[in-house]
Structures are given as C-alpha cells and as structure tokens.
Design a protein around this nucleic acid. Structure first.
Lengths: 328, 328
DNA sequence: TTGTATGCGTTATCAC
DNA sequence: GTGATAACGCATACAA
C-alpha cells in the first residue's frame, strides 16, 4: 500500500500563518469574524501553500455537498440533452455543481439512489425509469418529464394530454379520419397521458377510426408498426417520439409512400432533423427549457428548507406546424 | 440552523451487535478476519438498523471515491451521448460509479478540475475544451476525442487524419475536382488533423481545387459557408460535423440543389438521421465505442497504480458509403 | 479474533 | 477576536 501523501490541510495553513486552526477556518469558510490583519496573514499562507479545502471533510461536517444530481434513464436519448444543459446552467447559477448519472435498469436506479444518498448529495432531479420504484425519503427529489407512482411526489411534466389533444385535433381539422398512433411502453406515465389526449380529441368527432400500436420508444418499433398498418393505409400517423418517427419514415421510404401526399405524419419533441427532413415535421414540442428550469428552482428551494407542498405541475406544449400534414 | 439528525453509524451497529467498532468495521468493509458468529451478529444489526456506510467518511479515510468523472464540453452535442453511455457501462462493470460533468468555458473547465479534485474523485475521462488549459497532476486523466497541448498526456483519439484522407480520396476517385471543406474552430486539435487528412489526399491528385471554410461547429456556420460557396458551386462538400452538415443541407434545400445530382456531400460521425435523410449520408464514422472503452480501461489501470507510459492512441475510422456522393 | 485508540480535514462550541 | 477541543463516521495499527 502506497503511503498516503498527506494533503495540505488547515493545520498547515494555520501553522504557517501563526494562528490557531479555528481562526484559519473562519477566514476560509467566511463565517465568524476575524481581524483584517490576521485575515491577510491567513490568506497569504493559503496561496503560499496552494491550499484547497477538502470537500469530503467539509461535506461530512456540514452535511452539505453543494452538488445536485440529474438522474436519467438513457444517456443515448438526445431528448435529455437539452434538459441536462438547462439544469446544468441553472445549477451553476444557483451555486451548485451538477452531475449526471444514469441507470439502465430498475436495480441500477435503486442503486443510484443509494450511492447518491451515501455521498450526501444535496438533491436529485429524477427522470424515473421504473414507475413503481420506492423513493428515498432522506433527500429532496423533483421528478422531471415522467412521474412515478410514489406519493407524495414533486414533479414537473409537460401537459402531454392537452398537447396530444391539440395535435390530434389539428389532424382531424385537416380532414383525416383514419389515424394510427404509435406509442411506446404502456406503463410509462407519459404514454398514458398521450393516449388519453388523442382519445379526448377523437371523442369530439364522428366516424373516426383510431388504431393504437403500443410497443417501445424505438426506431425498430416505429418501423414495424408502420409496416403492419400499411395494409390499410391510415390517413395520418402520430409517432409519439422522434425515434418512432424515424422508423415510420424509414418504412414509408421503402414503400415509396410520400409525405404528405399519400399519408400525413406528426410527432412529438423536436430534434434538429425534423426541420430539414423532407417536408419538415409537424410536431408537438414540450417546453423542455421551462420544465428543467422550474425543476431546478423547485429543488433548490427544497434544499434550502422551504416548506413547499408536494405537487405535480403540467406545463403546456407547443404545436409546431411544418409540412408533414396534408389536406383531405 | 436545523439540528443535525445523526446518521446510523458504525457505532450504533457495533453497540447493537455487542461488539467493538473495529470489529463491525471489519465485517462491513470485508477486510481482516472475523469469526462466523460475530459476523452474523453484525450483519443482523446492520439490517436491523438499516445501516449504510457513509461514503464521505469512507472516501476521506481511504482516499478512494470509486467514482470516475466524464468531463465533456457540451451537453447539447449528441456526439458525446454514445461515449457517455459506453463509459458508463464500462465504469459500472469495473466497479465504479460514473458521473458526467460539463464546462461551458475554459474557466468553468478549470473550476471543474478543482472541485473534482477537492472531492477526491478517482479519475477523469476528459474531452478538453480549452486546448491550452493546464491539467491537474494530482489525479489520473485520460483525454478522449480531443487532446490538449499539455504534455505528457494520455489520450484516445480517432485517426481523423487518416480517415479524412480516405474520405477525400473517395471523393476524388468519384471524379470530383472542386471540393469545399467546412470545418469548425481551428484551434481544436481535431480540426487540424481533419484538414491535414484532406490535404494529404488532395496532394496525391492533379488539378484539384480545394476551398477551406473555417468557422464553428454549428449549423449556422454550415449554412453560411455553403451560401457563400454557392456562387461557384463546388463538386463536393465535406461537412466536418453533423451540425455543419445540417446547415449545408438547409442551404441546399433552399436553393433547390439536389444531392447527389447537383452536388455531393459527405460528413463525419453518424447520427441517426444520416441514414434516412434524402439519399443517405456518406460519412466517416469514428470508432466511438472502442475509443470510450479503451479510455476507461486505461484510466482504471492508472487508478490501480499501474505504471503506464503516457501515450496518444489513434484508432481507425470507418467510411460508411450511402447515397450522397455522385459520379463525375 | 477482538477491542481501543488514533487520525483523516473540517466546522462548531466554548472558554479566554 | 482568538485558540484549544470536541465532534463527524470510518479505517487501521496495535495491544490484548
């Protein structure tokens, strides 16, 4: 075992400055009062020794890590990139460091909670993977984009139900009466909301044929679902995620079906390529910026000890109309 | 100030189990030997009290955090998503937790190093933002995808020079003699490599016109550069990143120029949409998986104290041919 | 094998 | 204002 190289500690600083360790601590942490003369002496010692406080010791003593974790299920999903970016900026602005963690499975998700707690992380912004996972009560948590079954809970969501209602209504207004909606895992809270929104809209019209294909939020599933639906070509298809949309497009390409002449397509979220793919993708855009900013604000208040009632907040989506929907 | 709620500590476990604190520690950390009987007693106490070791105290004592940080410059850039994912999986497999951090500016990058060091993170996989930033010597670092000027250094890079040579050669073989290459920030090490590769290829042919537009790795820049180049339409354009490519495509769309009939386009990296955009994007694909896996392997060895000579490793890219290049 | 005591680097409490 | 001193929770050397 390699001998531990002792750090430069407060002890060393105090000794070089010729003061007590308590005084040195007061200068560095900024709490308590010290005379201007000693303050300068200590500060000189600090820079002479290149001293840096040990955050582990600090966090242990003060029970504050000044770290917020963004816990997300899938690093490969660009959907969360903008959330991560916004959260990061907001955290920095609020004086926190931000780290991202990921969990591929429910077990890993649980494991993540454990180790974040073990490191006394100040709080977590959490995109739940498993809807039924019990949540640790020892630290502040705000859920983002999806909400688990656990109650009480704090969560910031997009109003997907309202949004999908609007999106579907738009389709119906353009005269489409045979619509296929392709969704992902049914146990996700958001899947339920989206489907409900579609149904809300359909219920207001007569003679609408609605087909629902539930599977995964993957390109493969979009491709597959589109392929089986093609026998009776729907007027319009609602791809409930960009990945699903890409599968749909791939299928349509192969069958040489044209958008929007032969079939209309709409989606959810707004990756770059939606704007320059073919006719442009008409899509429902969740307010990722607002959601993320709000989550951080909420979480930092919680950390500061504010008494806030648990709540689930829904923020409105925006319908972005481009060229992928035709008229009938 | 809220009174601190004391954690369940080793002390409590030892007391309940009726053993010394040292013994309890030995059971939990797994080091040293204990009799089967006491081991069970301690383990019972652990689960009875729901005890969890405090990682801060542990890390402080043992100088090991079991955490690896992936430090990247831009959370919005999907390029790093797959690296993050691979690194994450590799870290978990190697018994580490992985966190992602980001720094928007050189100052923040420096700041990140500081606080990661202050928390005694075990090691860092680092995508440098500022090429000239001095690196901390107190912890193991392996750079990924880009390399800073600091020496000695450990870095895993794509062989972008060789790759762009191959990519350009392909273009030339198809008969293109007027090529425009659009690149990003010139001070990035990778920009230099890519440009060099293009020049290597061009040097082997006669009568090639080569235009270079250096700007940013953004969609806007791709759009802009394409717009100015259009006055003398090049045979082929090399967009050195997907974002630049998307700008190029946007410009081409607006001018109603067709790929590959009117102009050929190639790029670097391989986001999903490259495969289903128009004719499909012919592109040079860096070995992100191998690079990331290699970086983790390297870093964990470093952490384990293996004496490895500093080195810069270049891994070969793959040319993925689709439909965006025509014949002349 | 087991228990005690010491130290890791802080912050907080308390006399002075 | 200042300087000892006691925690924080754990690991380890050492004595038993």
């Amino acid at each position: 075992m390699p001998e531990r190289k002792r750090d430069v500690s407060l002890h060393d600083v105090a000794r070089l400055a010729g003061v007590g360790i308590g005084t040195a601590s007061r200068v560095i942490s900024g709490r308590g009062s010290v005379s201007e003369a000693t303050r300068r002496k200590v500060e000189e010692a600090v820079s002479a020794l290149n001293y840096r406080p040990n955050s582990l010791a600090r966090a242990m003593r003060s029970d504050q890590s000044h770290i917020i974790a963004f816990m997300q299920p899938d690093l490969l999903n660009e959907f969360y990139d903008v959330s991560a970016d916004v959260i990061h900026r907001a955290c920095v602005a609020a004086g926190y460091q931000m780290v991202i963690t990921s969990s591929l499975t429910a077990e890993e998700e649980w494991e993540s909670f454990r180790w974040l707690a073990d490191y006394r992380i100040d709080g977590i912004i959490h995109v739940p993977l498993s809807p039924t996972l019990p949540l640790p009560v020892t630290m502040p948590i705000v859920q983002l984009n999806r909400v688990s079954a656990h109650r009480p809970i704090n969560a910031v969501l997009a109003d997907e139900r309202g949004g999908f209602d609007e999106l579907t209504t738009y389709l119906l207004q353009q005269g489409h009466r045979d619509v296929l909606v392709i969704i992902g895992e049914e146990h996700h809270s958001s899947t339920q909301f989206r489907l409900q929104g579609v149904r809300d809209a359909v219920a207001r019209y007569q003679d609408v044929r609605l087909r629902v294909s539930a599977g995964e939020f993957t390109r493969e599933w979009g491709y597959q679902a589109m392929n089986v639906a093609v026998e009776e070509l729907p007027h319009a298809v609602i791809a409930s995620s960009p990945r699903i949309a890409s599968g749909v497009i791939q299928a349509l390409n192969e069958m040489e079906l044209r958008v929007p002449e032969d079939i209309s397509v709409v989606s959810f979220d707004d990756p770059d390529w939606f704007s320059f793919w073919g006719p442009g993708m008409t899509t429902l855009v969740p307010p990722l910026h607002d959601m993320s900013a709000r989550a951080v604000d909420w979480l930092t208040r919680l950390i500061d000890g504010e008494e806030i009632a648990s709540d689930i907040v829904h923020l409105p989506c925006t319908l972005r109309i481009r060229g992928s929907v035709g008229n009938r």
